[in-house]
Amino acid sequence: MQIYFSRSYRHLKPDSKERLFLLLGCVLPCVVFFLFFYTKISYLLAVWVKEALTVTIPESSLRIAYAEFLPFFGGVYYVQIPSTMPSFQEITLNLAVTLILLFICFLPSRNSKGGTPLFIYFAIILLTHLIAIIFFMFAQDFYPYSATHYSELYIKQQVGIWLSFLVLSGLIMGILGYGGITGRLIAFWGTMTYSFVFGCVRYLASMFIISKVSSLYMAILFFSLGPLFDFLYLVCFYSIYINAQINRFDQGERRLKWLWL
């Protein structure tokens, strides 16, 4: 007997019980829990960031504030921090450095054999920063955000990312996932735990930079370290999980789970 279609048409039988358990027993409760508790979570995060920032910023200038966010589910808490506007020297220095870096990005990308995507990525980030520099150079008084505004924006964005990732990771692991339930749960929780830790640390780092250095870096932080960066680790965790599954389904009893017609 010959097996003609070693990979062309093979597929797996959906595991309905595991899927239902994951979606209804894990993902859905997590999403509901998050929706009803993100206000509390943002409060705890704000308290932690406020405490951490007191090392470098006087406690009297730090407060925790509340802003409305999703209807029905409540608002978010964030840290009010003092703004630091950039000096003329800082703007000029940033302009010079940004132009040099942009030149470097565009120069090798013409014939680069290795790093073209990275150069394009950095060029877009630098162009965003350049717009911010020009804005502060000519219209500093019209800049629409204080450090506190930015803090509010960050928290709302972060809640949006966490919610999106809960749904996305849940759907991928719950519906598209294969193999044992333990592996899927580890991948799901691993992604969300990392996302939570990363989001918190990024909030602290962003607030520190905005407050201690200057508001000039708001745009670059918002657009470069935002959702696309989050996707990087989401896909990292997912690829590790898939690599493990590919190995498992290639040997032992799991190999027999492939359907060939």
């Binding site: 990979r7 093979r10 597929h11 294969y178 990087l232 680790y233 896909v235 990292c236 997912y238 690829s239 590790i240 898939i242 690599n243 599954q245 590919i246 190995n247 389904f249 290639d250």
Partner: peptide, 13 residues
């Protein structure tokens, strides 16, 4: 997964 390609999947990020 269907193709059974090991390791290279780690390049996905």
């Amino acid at each position: 997964m269907v193709d059974g390609v090991k390791k290279d999947v780690l390049l996905l990020p």
